[in-house]
Amino acid sequence: MAAGGDHGSPDSYRSPLASRYASPEMCFVFSDRYKFRTWRQLWLWLAEAEQTLGLPITDEQIQEMKSNLENIDFKMAAEEEKRLRHDVMAHVHTFGHCCPKAAGIIHLGATSCYVGDNTDLIILRNALDLLLPKLARVISRLADFAKERASLPTLGFTHFQPAQLTTVGKRCCLWIQDLCMDLQNLKRVRDDLRFRGVKGTTGTQASFLQLFEGDDHKVEQLDKMVTEKAGFKRAFIITGQTYTRKVDIEVLSVLASLGASVHKICTDIRLLANLKEMEEPFEKQQIGSSAMPYKRNPMRSERCCSLARHLMTLVMDPLQTASVQWFERTLDDSANRRICLAEAFLTADTILNTLQNISEGLVVYPKVIERRIRQELPFMATENIIMAMVKAGGSRQDCHEKIRVLSQQAASVVKQEGGDNDLIERIQVDAYFSPIHSQLDHLLDPSSFTGRASQQVQRFLEEEVYPLLKPYESVMKVKAELCL
């Protein structure tokens, strides 16, 4: 049975990233139509530049190519590739079939990587351009969430054990800070992308030097003109047959890092959902379990974690691919890159769409948070109580021993009897502590235990987050809708 299948058929496997999760716009960027249309555009740009620099290419040939950029006979191309065992030459023939007058000058002087690699770089750039505003929107939604809850005390956790208090907004800023680093890295790697350009079979530009009869300047002009037509500021000066596969490492490393950030955020949300302090959106008709109707599973956060793990592992592909590119190139890269580049971007696209949807509907339960604080705060307040007693004339050592005994009794009630923490009640009825009984409410005010959390939130948002989001103001209103 021949390899390949009808990918629109229910009898043929289709990647869930495309069929179930990723956005239509990201799927289109990695589609065959987008790819092969870009090949034709690159052939047109090459012909236009070659004509401008004096090669015998007519206006009629150029116009014929322009008129057929979208006229792609995919069936013919597939048949040609089956016959020739070469995808680029299959599309040269297919393009030439609908451009008979231009057929002889299509791909003039070029090698397969002229269309293959340059198209990949265009796709990487455009895919990054799709991700950047999506990530900015996630940051914006979380920034709104953090600002609104900047002063809401909550129990902090280290080692997932109760620690000092923080605020809900401050905790959210930990998430935002990681995503801001990801946004900066995505922008950097996007701006650092260079075009492969017009380089020939081993990167020496020998074929173009021959076409222009040894004119170095025209060869350099050709490279520059096509690079500018493709919208790049610069091209690699040095290439082998391909652009260095280190570029793929750079791009997928940034995406993998984004995956790590999203995994951490969504894990926190899942843990908070278990504590009943916070939940992701839950639709009115949504079913959490087929057997347990009360369940409210954090399905979206779980999906993000599941896909983020996949995204983090994909960076190993370009690392290994770059390491086995012998001399000017081997074909070890080809099949692998067809999979890992598309999957990385479709996965990143999915987790950003999902995280935006989550961040637009996060639900906080202040009463649950308050109750958990009441359970733990008495123990945390013991040092403040000791200091207040010393100020009232008591002995630190005597007070410490009193607190120690009462704390152990209260802990026994919590752990052995399943009761509430009654340390404060014990202190309130103990005559030894009568000098500070009137101060206990103040000493137990949760806001006095959150330090500068709310001020940190305000400063972080104003100095770091809002300036970073400013270039994306025009796209901030787009909502994230999930079908599944």
Results as ranks from 00 to 15, higher is better:
residue 5 G to E: 15
residue 6 D to M: 15
residue 20 R to E: 00
residue 25 E to M: 11
residue 26 M to N: 01
residue 27 C to T: 15
residue 32 D to M: 12
residue 34 Y to D: 06
residue 47 A to Y: 00
residue 57 I to H: 09
residue 58 T to P: 07
residue 59 D to P: 10
residue 60 E to R: 11
residue 72 I to L: 12
residue 73 D to Y: 08
residue 77 A to V: 14
residue 81 E to G: 00
residue 90 A to T: 15
residue 95 F to L: 08
residue 110 A to K: 03
residue 112 S to E: 00
residue 121 L to F: 03
residue 122 I to N: 03
residue 124 L to E: 13
residue 132 L to C: 15
residue 138 V to S: 14
residue 149 R to W: 13
residue 151 S to M: 11
residue 157 F to V: 02
residue 163 A to R: 00
residue 164 Q to P: 03
residue 171 R to H: 05
residue 172 C to V: 14
residue 175 W to K: 05
residue 177 Q to D: 05
residue 182 D to S: 05
residue 182 D to P: 05
residue 183 L to W: 08
residue 186 L to P: 02
residue 188 R to D: 07
residue 194 R to D: 05
residue 200 G to N: 04
residue 200 G to C: 02
residue 201 T to Y: 00
residue 205 Q to E: 02
residue 211 L to A: 09
residue 212 F to T: 07
residue 213 E to A: 14
residue 223 D to V: 02
residue 225 M to A: 12
residue 228 E to T: 14
residue 228 E to P: 04
residue 229 K to N: 05
residue 229 K to V: 05
residue 230 A to Q: 02
residue 234 R to L: 11
residue 239 T to G: 01
residue 244 T to E: 00
residue 244 T to S: 14
residue 245 R to K: 08
residue 246 K to D: 00
residue 247 V to C: 12
residue 249 I to A: 12
residue 257 S to M: 09
residue 258 L to V: 11
residue 263 H to Q: 05
residue 268 D to R: 00
residue 271 L to I: 14
residue 275 L to I: 12
residue 282 F to I: 14
residue 284 K to E: 09
residue 284 K to L: 13
residue 288 G to N: 02
residue 295 K to Y: 00
residue 295 K to H: 01
residue 297 N to R: 03
residue 301 S to V: 14
residue 306 S to W: 02
residue 310 H to I: 12
residue 313 T to F: 09
residue 315 V to A: 07
residue 319 L to R: 00
residue 323 S to N: 05
residue 330 T to L: 03
residue 336 N to Q: 08
residue 337 R to A: 02
residue 339 I to D: 03
residue 343 E to Y: 08
residue 346 L to F: 14
residue 359 S to V: 11
residue 382 T to S: 13
residue 385 I to G: 03
residue 387 M to E: 00
residue 388 A to V: 04
residue 390 V to M: 11
residue 391 K to L: 06
residue 391 K to M: 07
residue 398 D to L: 15
residue 401 E to L: 09
residue 402 K to C: 01
residue 408 Q to N: 15
residue 408 Q to S: 15
residue 408 Q to K: 14
residue 414 V to S: 05
residue 415 K to Y: 06
residue 418 G to A: 06
residue 419 G to M: 11
residue 424 I to P: 11
residue 425 E to I: 07
residue 430 D to N: 11
residue 441 D to L: 13
residue 442 H to S: 11
residue 442 H to Y: 12
residue 442 H to W: 14
residue 455 Q to P: 10
residue 457 V to K: 05
residue 458 Q to V: 14
residue 459 R to D: 10
residue 464 E to W: 07
residue 471 P to S: 15
residue 480 A to D: 14
residue 482 L to R: 06
